[in-house]
Nucleic acid binder design. Sequence first.
DNA 1: TTGAAAGCGGTACCAA
DNA 2: TTGGTACCGCTTTCAA
Lengths: 355, 355
Amino acid sequence: MGKIDNSRRARKKPTAAKAAGPAAARGARMTDVARLAEVSIMTVSRALRHPAVVDPETLKRIHGAINATGYLPNRIAGSLASQRSNIVGLVVPSLRNSLFAETVKGVADTLGADFDLMIADSGYVLDGEETAVAAFLSQRVCGIVLHNTKHTPRTRGLIQSAGIPCVETGNLVRRPIDMVASFSNRKAAFEMTAFLVGKGYRRIAFVSLPLRDNDRARERQSGYLQALKQFGLPVDRRIVLESTPGLRGGAHALIELMKVRPKIEAVFLTGDVLATGALLEANRNGWLVPDTIAIAGSDDNELQECVSPALTSLRFPRYDIGCTAASMLLNRISGNLPAAHIVDLGFQIIPRQST
Amino acid sequence: MGKIDNSRRARKKPTAAKAAGPAAARGARMTDVARLAEVSIMTVSRALRHPAVVDPETLKRIHGAINATGYLPNRIAGSLASQRSNIVGLVVPSLRNSLFAETVKGVADTLGADFDLMIADSGYVLDGEETAVAAFLSQRVCGIVLHNTKHTPRTRGLIQSAGIPCVETGNLVRRPIDMVASFSNRKAAFEMTAFLVGKGYRRIAFVSLPLRDNDRARERQSGYLQALKQFGLPVDRRIVLESTPGLRGGAHALIELMKVRPKIEAVFLTGDVLATGALLEANRNGWLVPDTIAIAGSDDNELQECVSPALTSLRFPRYDIGCTAASMLLNRISGNLPAAHIVDLGFQIIPRQST
DNA sequence: TTGAAAGCGGTACCAA
DNA sequence: TTGGTACCGCTTTCAA
């Protein structure tokens, strides 16, 4: 039975024969397993998907056949037939930045082995994100995680009309495409500025990455300005900077700031490793931290803790954000309504010697 | 024509109706585009795949229909029919480590927009890699990049019998599963040790990450030992350490090493940020670098350059390795035989003030 | 508990 | 340059 059906088995090997490596075996299909186990293909499918409803004896034969043939399920065929995939798509501004890596890890750990992760790099460009999203949607991903929270209209439209769940992670936006798991960048910057004011510093500089297309940096600057305003401190645009990324960016920013008169008392550098770069530069120049200049950073990590003096910093729960984002996706994929569309994971100020 | 075929279009919306977001539109299919453009589905397929052979006028109508319907190609169906996917699978020991991120970025940049990247984390465990590879093979990836170069037998078997191209990137192994693009960890460690000997240091300690399941660390230790032997220096097992990762790991290793008598003159820490951790610890303790203790590192980065004194280090072309790996894959995917199975991208010693 | 048949949405091949 | 037809390998539905 089924033998006739399978007699058309002289699989064409097109150019593959040329390109293929050592063994160009096209792999066993479910049909092959079924034939060997002397059951129908449907029973094999069930054995893999709902083993509970299959007779234990049958199950055993099937597993034997699977091992014997080295069968690996074809998820492409499976996804096409079932109209659902097990791939989650993730877009980060840069694959290089270890900040995002934390979130990615949280997502990956939470998704577990049942889902695969497709990752793309937007290169900090909105159109890059759009391209990535379109590609993901073509692959029919079952969910999307976006780090950036600023998007092209088409990106939003694409995701919404695809009707798949989406979580944004970079900033606690009010109106997410679908859902958001993050913290408030504005509030974090506000609180850090307030912390510095509380320490007695009055002339506080602010350095961030370029604001263009970067919601996070924008929100942080806005939080800083808001704090100054609230505490009745004047804004001096000469000490509100946008910097290139990297340790050198922070170092350079500090040098520029130290030239300004009247002298600044403290500087809050947020984004990338700017604060560490500034601290190392201060050390090189013999500027005492925090006496000559107090330095505060963000995105706390082991390095900020190990430098001397250790850096006062903001701690963001990036790993948790990834975990939460994945959970929210999973929840929706299993057919539930979202418990919440907006999840605030908060942040912490870690006071150390640099302020 | 074809209308009857399409009259069964009351698509079932199973649980999706419940799970779906704002708009649960199932999306247009090629058939819809074809109907609107008044051509056959085949012509639409061609318009997308080989636009050159389609009449310009027809093409225009088709693109109009694509925009009108918001059609997004279904790559799942496409892949199933064509028996080829455009997904490359990548396994790294840890998503967290920015070292690997460089290689990932190289791969992503080189693959470009025509391919998607699936990334998995082996958690530094061989079985984790096997699981990831099996999952990738189930997704029918068209190529695989593996950072680790030690594998379970099943991992090798799986990839070889799948007959898809594979590039390993972590170490220049002699007998790759298929291809390798990397540098020689052993030779790099050998050269750095030789460099220190050349500087006049005789009692040179060595610190790496744990050797278990880690070919790279193993090879590096072996290169160090080989250099000592070649220069007639004795091996003192008390100053050959395996350390936990992180700045603290390096700091702790240095503290242990400084207790050993006779005193060591130099230490070569390789892997993660061990060297930086050791340098910061030396600074904290007032140990003069390089006078009291010389420190050399590996995996050069901006931080090693910005600390004081700047660290002598090994530079590995991780980004290039990623680019090369992707090129090798691409070459094979287009049906060519590999130009070379083993590509050595080399390394550099960057001498600075710490030695 | 098991099986038969009809697709899923495209692509390959060949004929027109 | 265009279209018809037979699949790709699996899941769904429904009947046995």
